[in-house]
């Protein structure tokens, strides 16, 4: 819990502490609702939720012939492992190869700006919705929240044609087949939820802190950067992870805005193509699926406590 000492004692912080079972806040009596049956049920759920991924992982390490010959649960019988599937999907080049390495880099290049840009813009808006004063503020805020319902599929073509027509003279501001379109598209689609969640957190910051700064003569910009942002780190981190996972795993936006080129298309797009054209080539598919999962899984396991904490802050209030 020592990683974010700057957080004031917002209700969130208490919650987060409670979420750490090893910290004895008050030695609670063991009043678990659980019984033996519950434990068994929990174990069953855990197993069901893990087995599919585990099976895929085992399969991705088996030689092609074995994958086709029998199920992965036979692996104890043959104990043959290979990394060939991985070298196959990653290393090779050219139109015929799945060439996932390049797509992996693309995914990274897409996801970093597509996470940072909406976070900054949403925090700014959220700050105004929490602490600014103007007429129609609540209505505007609810309207933005409601924009979540616009199905993405609807927005694709109009947005794409807008990008194409955005020109200064002959110079195209956002040429197709570049990351720029993807960054902006992802940023836009993230905004409604981001503004909503960040607002919930930022509005919890004690008013005195902001008033004090104001009295000292600090302007909005200063307050925002010096006080609000540092205090909102948990929520920003949480939504950042959320957005990161979302962008990394996206297929639809990528299909439309990347134009399918190997220059910018992310890994999910390639994986979807592999499922389409090589339906039965499980050795490539399994390894490919795992490569695409590595980053989100690492991000998730590395940062999961921020994820929970930040979402909680937004969540409970909703």
């Amino acid at each position: 819990m020592s990683t974010t000492p700057a957080i004031p004692a917002a209700p969130e912080a208490v919650l987060a502490k409670a979420a750490e079972p090893q910290i004895p806040i008050a030695r609670r009596v063991k009043q678990r609702l659980t019984s033996r049956g519950a434990t068994a049920a929990a174990i069953i759920i855990a197993v069901i939720w893990t087995v599919p991924t585990f099976g895929l992982f085992i399969s991705s390490l088996r030689p092609e012939d074995n994958i086709q010959a029998n199920g992965w649960w036979n692996v104890l019988g043959d104990l043959e492992f290979t990394t060939k599937n991985y070298t196959d999907v990653l290393a090779s080049a050219g139109g015929s190869a799945s060439n996932l390495g390049q797509y992996f880099i693309n995914s990274l290049a897409i996801v970093i700006p597509a996470t940072i840009i909406p976070l900054v813009i949403a925090s700014m808006a959220a700050y105004i919705f929490a602490w600014g004063r103007f007429r129609g503020k609540d209505t505007l805020f609810i309207f933005i929240f409601a924009l979540q319902i616009v199905p993405l599929q609807m927005a694709l073509i109009p947005l794409l044609s807008l990008f194409i027509n955005l020109k200064i003279g002959e110079f195209q501001l956002l040429p197709s087949g570049t990351y720029a379109q993807l960054w902006i598209a992802h940023s836009i689609f993230a905004l409604p939820l981001a503004i909503f969640l960040l607002h919930n957190f930022i509005s919890e910051i004690p008013g005195e802190v902001i008033e004090a700064a104001r009295v000292d003569g600090a302007g909005h910009a200063t307050i925002f950067w010096r006080i609000v942002l540092p205090l909102s780190v948990p929520a920003i981190a949480a939504f950042g992870i959320f957005q990161f996972l979302w962008v990394w795993n996206d297929l639809l936006v990528a299909l439309v805005f990347s134009g399918g080129t190997a220059d910018v298309a992310p890994i999910t797009q390639r994986l979807a193509e592999l499922t389409g054209t090589r339906g039965d080539e499980w050795h490539r598919l399994t390894a490919g699926a795992f490569v695409s999962m590595i980053v989100p899984l690492a991000v998730f396991f590395g940062l999961q406590r921020y994820f929970v904490r930040g979402l909680m802050a937004g969540g409970l209030k909703g």
Binding site: L156, I157, L160, S161, F163, I164, N165, S176, V256, G259
Partner: peptide, 8 residues
Amino acid sequence: QVRAQAGN
């Protein structure tokens, strides 16, 4: 079709 509709 997407690209043609969008003018790209």
